[in-house]
């Protein structure tokens, strides 16, 4: 049985008579432990899809107009509030794009991780030890001392590690990383991606990486989905899609990644008229 099964999902915004079709009938599956990338430009609907997986997208304004989302056999869109909350964090956990604003500035990082553990793993006695271990796993040095730090006392890269630690603390079966490196410096980006890769190898947690950058996908994801204007236009094993992209848009996206050893005066601009 698939871990996650999305079928004909449609999410609209705006007036019903003239809706914005943010997600326009997409279907995909993820197996346990699988790493998949969802690629597309801003506004293609990939973040909306990610948030919809646990109904984090508030409705209204969003409207879930069609389809179903099944996680471990349970229909997320029809789950009662209580079970939904149990799913959030322990079933599906998130790492968001902007670590500096995604952490609550008035609580210590230790407290914010503790909240997640208290909620989903009440059986744990030594919570502090568990938090230290979580921070240690994501490569934060001297985690005992960092516990009582406030988010603003950490660098952007460190904040994102804390976010990842918080997500992992509840042992989720699926980690959704929504543009986890976009807000970070290039060198830090690499560190975070390396961390995610290491985590992928250590556990059998599935990872859904959401990105607009094909460059990140190549040596990370097993499979890739390409989203364009609310639809999935291409999907397949990463190597295959990269080697032989079928859709014009995929080709354009791949060409947007600057390559080493190639002289390129300008970045490619996507020619939408040619795609549609």
């Amino acid at each position: 049985m698939a871990l996650l099964h999305v079928e004909n999902l449609g999410i609209h915004f705006g007036p019903p008579e003239d809706p914005v079709r943010a997600v326009d009938g997409i279907s995909f599956e993820m197996a346990a432990g699988e790493t998949m990338a969802l690629v597309g430009e801003s506004g293609s609907g990939k973040s909306v899809t990610a948030l919809a997986l646990t109904r984090l997208l508030a409705s209204p304004p969003a409207r879930y107009v069609s389809g179903r989302i099944e996680f471990e056999g349970r229909d997320v869109l029809r789950l009662p509030e209580r079970e939904l909350r149990a799913l959030r964090g322990s079933g599906i956990a998130y790492v968001f794009q902007e670590p500096s604003s995604s952490l609550n500035p008035v609580f210590t990082i230790g407290y914010q991780i503790r909240e997640a553990i208290d909620l989903h793993r009440p059986e744990i006695r030594d919570v502090t030890g568990e938090i230290v271990r979580a921070l240690d796993t994501v490569g934060i040095r001297e985690p005992e001392k960092r516990l009582n730090d406030y988010p603003h006392q950490l660098s952007g890269g460190m904040q994102q590690r804390v976010m990842i630690a918080m997500a992992l603390a509840c042992r989720p079966r699926l980690l959704v990383a929504d543009e986890p490196t976009t807000a970070l410096d290039v060198t830090i980006q690499k560190q975070i991606m390396d961390l995610l890769k290491a985590l992928k190898q250590q556990s059998n947690m599935a990872i859904l990486l959401i990105t607009h950058n094909f460059g990140l996908v190549a040596d990370f994801a097993d499979r890739v989905l390409v989203m364009f204007q609310g639809r999935i236009v291409e999907s397949g094993p990463t190597a295959e899609v990269l080697r032989n992209p079928q859709h014009l848009y995929t080709r354009a996206l791949i060409e947007c990644v600057p390559k080493l050893g190639q002289k390129q005066r300008r970045l490619k601009v996507i020619d939408y008229a040619g795609i549609n």
């Binding site: 909350r85 959030r88 964090g89 322990s90 968001f96 609550n104």
Partner: peptide, 14 residues
């Protein structure tokens, strides 16, 4: 309207 509210919800907080 802040991002950390989304994080708190994503954690499964009531």
């Amino acid at each position: 309207a802040q991002d950390f509210i989304r994080t708190a919800r994503a954690k499964g907080l009531p």
